[in-house]
Design a protein around this nucleic acid. Structure first.
Lengths: 133, 133
DNA sequence: TTGCGACCTCAACCCGGCTTGAGGTCAACT
DNA sequence: AGTTGACCTCAAGCCGGGTTGAGGTCGCAA
């Protein structure tokens, strides 16, 4: 059984964030002892799950809550599938940006950014895609 | 030479966002014709670059601006290296979340989330890491 | 017994990155 | 002549996810 301060430092978030999560109904303490929030092992796991999902930067707290509530709550599978699809999409974007930044680092940069071949490589695809419809 | 509306739809952002980027000095139009913003090919490339980097969700507009300004501006290499490191980190996080969500989808979920083995797998590492310092 | 640190509530504020609304100009159709 | 529609400015608002501050309650320990 941990105090809010212990729980916060264990999962690596601010105390104020845990209070906020409680208030929002995302993760509430197991109980209160003399007004103080007390977190048990189950809550720690939920907290860690929230942080993990939120670290992806792809879900709102509400979506996280929906996933954690789990079955019996309508569309959670759909939500999860959507998140997974977005994760894949996000990986694609990261790969693109990574390629570009890496080139950037190696590139002499004696040319202005607009003429950087690696950038044009990417942007020309983007711009071409905008022509067709 | 494109109008702001054309530029916006080409790169896939809102007109109001382009005005904002201009105002913030992130990407300005090549010129004005009768008060109206006019974007040339170079600006389109910059716009696409901004969008690409911002799609990663890891950089503020100011950091993007610093990168695009390029050499002669102090620390841009350091900034780029930092971003690349964060991209890697982010990929790691995405992988973790993806594993978890995938398990979640397949898992019967007749147990409450706290006892989901896949979740504990992850969170127990997190919690263990918090013990030692 | 005073003072410290950890906790509490509630309301207000912050931040980035837009978006929206009011109020106006201009060119082109009908 | 009038009415779209695309553009303009400037100020204000919104959203998510907290953070901060004032004001208060504990329990311990020097």
């Amino acid at each position: 059984m941990l105090s809010i301060g212990e729980a916060a430092s264990t999962v690596g978030v601010a105390v104020s964030a845990l209070r906020y999560w409680d208030e929002r109904g995302i993760v509430s303490p197991a109980s209160r002892r003399g007004g103080k929030r007390v977190y048990g092992p189950d809550e720690l796991h939920r907290l860690a799950a929230v942080k993990m999902l939120q670290d992806t930067g792809l879900c709102s707290l509400d979506e996280i809550a929906a996933v954690l509530r789990g079955p019996d709550h309508g569309d959670w599978r759909a939500v999860v599938r959507d998140r997974i699809a977005e994760l894949a999409e996000q990986r694609r974007k990261l790969a693109i940006a990574e390629t570009f930044l890496n080139h950037f680092l190696r590139c002499p940069r004696d040319h202005p950014i607009e003429t950087c071949p690696s950038l044009r490589d990417h942007t020309e695809r983007v711009l071409a895609a905008a022509e067709k419809p």
